[in-house]
């Protein structure tokens, strides 16, 4: 089982990003997804910068994947997308059907079908495979049971990546909720999301953590964490995706590595991860339940 580091979903200062990936180059991830997937206004790193980080990571022996933006709105978004698709060196993760079309048109035969493509049945998966997808990152919303069933019915097996750790990317909007919080408009947002390392907490009126505001993206408050479920996940995935967080990402990756190698029991690994997490854990989606639940099967 391989470990993949998902794309950085937050907006960090350039120097923080570069230092973060320098650390990742030394760490336990086998595969690293790079690029801005959330908001086209974020520009601390441009595509050229991401390509440099990619080259550095490749040099360090990591597989690098360039992730495309999840919500394409403008001609300029399409321009960036075409450049990502057009570069030949690194594999691409398609996060909308526009990217799928461009990759297919370019004759690219080894791209990753991203988690926002809504693949829920073998017929849709097969269409993407015909178009050149050779890896599938499963929508976090999909349960383990549904995943197992889909894989059992897939005409051609596909390398499968399961979202195993991090705040869940739950929704995208044209509206920026961070700008809204600061009473700013998106067009003149003053880049207020910069340096908010783990997004802004949204709580219910009872003070319960519920969601996280990350610009145009809304995430869960709780951290989806499948460390305790690794034995159940293992037969259904070839990669596990860990989503970057403000601190301790390298330690989380190392914990997953140790748990996968059998050096730590899943329950111990889950307990060891708790001090490294920004919020309580959840795993409901994997168990076919509300995503916010932390579900422990009866012994």
């Amino acid at each position: 089982m391989k470990l993949a580091l998902g794309p950085l979903l937050y907006y960090w200062p350039r120097q923080s990003v570069l230092e973060f990936y320098a650390g990742i180059a030394e760490g336990a991830a086998d595969s690293v997804y790079l690029g801005e997937t959330v908001c086209s206004r974020r520009h601390e790193l441009r595509l050229e910068d991401w390509l440099e980080v990619a080259a550095m990571l490749a040099e360090a022996g990591k597989e690098v994947v360039l992730s495309s933006q999840g919500l394409i709105e403008s001609e300029s978004d399409l321009k960036t997308l075409r450049r990502i698709v057009g570069q030949a060196r690194f594999r691409v993760e398609a996060n909308d059907m526009g990217a799928v079309r461009l990759l297919t048109e370019h004759g690219v035969r080894d791209w990753v079908a991203g988690p926002t493509l809504n693949v829920f049945n073998p017929a849709t998966l097969a269409l993407l495979q015909e178009g050149g997808a050779t890896r599938w990152a499963v929508a976090p919303e999909m349960s383990g049971a549904a995943l197992a069933e889909l894989r059992a019915h897939a005409a051609t097996p596909i390398e499968t990546e399961v979202f195993a750790y991090g705040r869940l990317p739950l929704a995208h909007s044209a509206r920026c909720f961070t700008a809204r919080h600061f009473n700013l408009q998106k067009d003149t947002c003053e880049f207020r999301c910069l340096s908010i390392m783990d997004g802004i907490a949204l709580r219910t009126r009872e003070g319960e953590p519920f969601l996280t505001l990350n610009g145009v993206q809304t995430q869960s408050a709780r951290v989806h964490n499948l460390l305790g479920d690794l034995d159940a996940v293992r037969p259904h995935a070839e990669l596990l995706r860990i989503s970057p967080q403000g601190a301790h990402t390298a330690e989380i990756l190392a914990l997953f590595r140790r748990a996968l190698d059998g050096a730590l029991a899943p329950a111990e690994a889950l307990a060891a991860s708790r001090p490294l997490m920004v919020e309580d854990p959840c795993n409901g989606f994997w168990h076919g339940r509300a995503g916010a639940e932390q579900y422990v099967a009866a012994a």
Binding site: P140, L168, L170, A171, A292
Partner: peptide, 19 residues
């Protein structure tokens, strides 16, 4: 307010989603 087909908020809260 969210992009349709890209919203799992209801799934996160209840386990049931539009998708």
């Amino acid at each position: 307010v969210m992009v349709e087909g890209r919203c799992a908020l209801s799934a996160y809260a209840t386990g049931e989603s539009p998708n």
